[in-house]
Design a protein around this nucleic acid. Sequence first.
DNA 1: ATTGTGGCCTGCCCGC
DNA 2: TGCGGGCAGGCCACAA
Length: 259
Amino acid sequence: MPEILEIEAYRRLAVQVVGRTVRSVQAPDAWFIKGGATPESLSAALVGRRFTAARRLGKLLLLDSGGPTLGLRFGMTGRLLVDGQAAIEHLEWGSRRFNPAWHRFGLTFTGGGQLIIDDPRRFGGVEIAPDEAALGPDAWTLGVGGLRLALAGGRGPLKARLLDQSRIAGLGNLLVDEMCWRASLDPCRPAGSLSDQESSVLARVMRQVLNQLDKRGGSHMGDLFEHRGRGACCPQDGQPLTKTTIGGRTTWWCPLHQQ
DNA sequence: ATTGTGGCCTGCCCGC
DNA sequence: TGCGGGCAGGCCACAA
C-alpha cells in the first residue's frame, strides 16, 4: 500500500529509533539490499552509528546517522515495525498474516529494541545514501508554482506525470485517482494542457486530500476508493465510472464530471 | 528526452 | 470445497 501517507506514518514511528545506536544488522535477503551494497558492507556502514533524524522524501524514509544515511523503501506491501509495534497494522493488498520469513531487513540497537521491515512481496528495499536528488519536490509541501513546474510541457497523461517520482515525490495510484476526481480533471489529459486555474485547483485539492486522508488513516480512505471495482459509479453524480490503464496503472474516473 | 511497456515477487480474491 | 487465473497502491531497466 504504502504511498506518502503511509510512509509518513512510518516516519513518525521511526522517530523512536532516533538517538539509538545500531548494534547489529539483519539482512537475510541480499536481494533486498540495493545500490550495490551487500549485507556485510551494510553492516560495516551502520554498526556503531547513532541515528540523528528520521526524514521522509516522497515514499522514501531516511534515517540519518553520524555517517551515511540509510534509505528505506517499502514497495507495495512493506510495513515498518519498531520494538514489535507496527505503524499500520494492516495494509490494503497486504497480508494479514504474520510470517517471520517476510522480515527482509532488521536493525537491533544497543540498549535494546529492534527495527524491522516486513515485506511479503519484496518490492521494497534498503539502500545506503540513496540519491535524494533523483526525486522531485515532496507532494505534501508542493505549492501551486511547484505543481505548474512539474506539469509544464508534459505531453503524456496528467496521471502519469503525477505518478512520476522524479517530478513529484510521494503520490501513488490511489491518491492520484482521488485527486483527479476531486479536481474534476480527466487523468488522460496531457499534463501540460492544464490552465493556470486548473493547476491551482489541483494544487489545493492535493493538499486537502493529503491532510484529510492523513487524519482518516491512509491512502485507501479516499471518497473514491470504496467505489473502485466492478459496477462502480461516481459517488458525486452516479455516473458509471470508466476503468482504463494509464501509465501502466489501473485507473478509475468519472467521464461525466472529470474533464 | 520523454514516454510506454514489461518484469520483478508473492499473497489473496473471485469465479468456475 | 478446491483450484487457478487475474490482480495488486512501487519501481527499474529497456525500447521506441
